[in-house]
Amino acid sequence: MSNHSAEPADFSGDEPEGLDGHTIEELNDYLDRDRTPTDASIDNSPGCQIALGTLERLRGLTRTLLDRDALAEPERDDSWVSSILAGLTREVHAGRDIPITHGSPNARLSVTEGAVRGMIRAAGDSVGGIVTGRCRLEGDVTELGEPINVLVEANAFWVDRLADAEEDVRRAVRAELERHTDLNIEAIDVTIEDATASLASTE
C-alpha cells in the first residue's frame, strides 16, 4: 500500500508538504469516497499514501475513542440511575382509555392502554426464554366491541422451537386479555426474534 522507503510528509508548515500538490482535505474526501473513482496522482504519490494511512489510523482510533472514554468513566453508585428514573412521568405512556362495561349509566369505567400493554408484556414474559418487546393494539379500543388486532414482538433465549414459543405467547396473551378486559380480540400476531447469539458475545 504505502512506500515505506519514502520520506514522510512534512507537517511543520501550515499545509503539509510532500503530498505532491494535494491537501489533507482532498485526501480526506478521497477516503470518504472509498478511493473511488481512483485518483492516480494520489495513488502514485508515496507521501499521499503515507498521509492516507495516517488519516485511516485517525479514523480507526476515533471510532474507539468514545468507547474508551466510557470505560474510563469512574464507577458510579446507583444514585445517578435513581435520580434519572425519579424524573420520569407515568402519563406519557397511559395511551387510550379502554372502556369496561357496567350496568349503571353513571359508571365511567376504563383501563388504560398502558396498563393493558404491561399486562401483555407480563403474559409474554411468563413463557420460558421469552422477553416481550413492543406491544400494539390496532383498532379503536375506545369503542366497546370494536374488533382489535394485537401485535407482540419478543426476544427468545435458548428456545428450541420458535413456532411453539409463538403459539405459547399467543395463548398466554389471549388468556390474559380475556381475563382482564372486555376487548373484542380478533387476532394476535406474535413475532419472535432469536436473541441467543447476543449472549455468546462478551463485552
Binding site: 405512556h93 397511559a94 398502558g114 400493554r117 418487546g133 413492543r134 414482538e153 426474534e193
Partner: peptide
C-alpha cells in the same frame, strides 16, 4: 426489545 418495552411504559 428494550426500546419497545420502554416505549410502552
Amino acid at each position: 426489545t428494550l426500546a419497545g418495552r420502554a416505549a410502552d411504559g
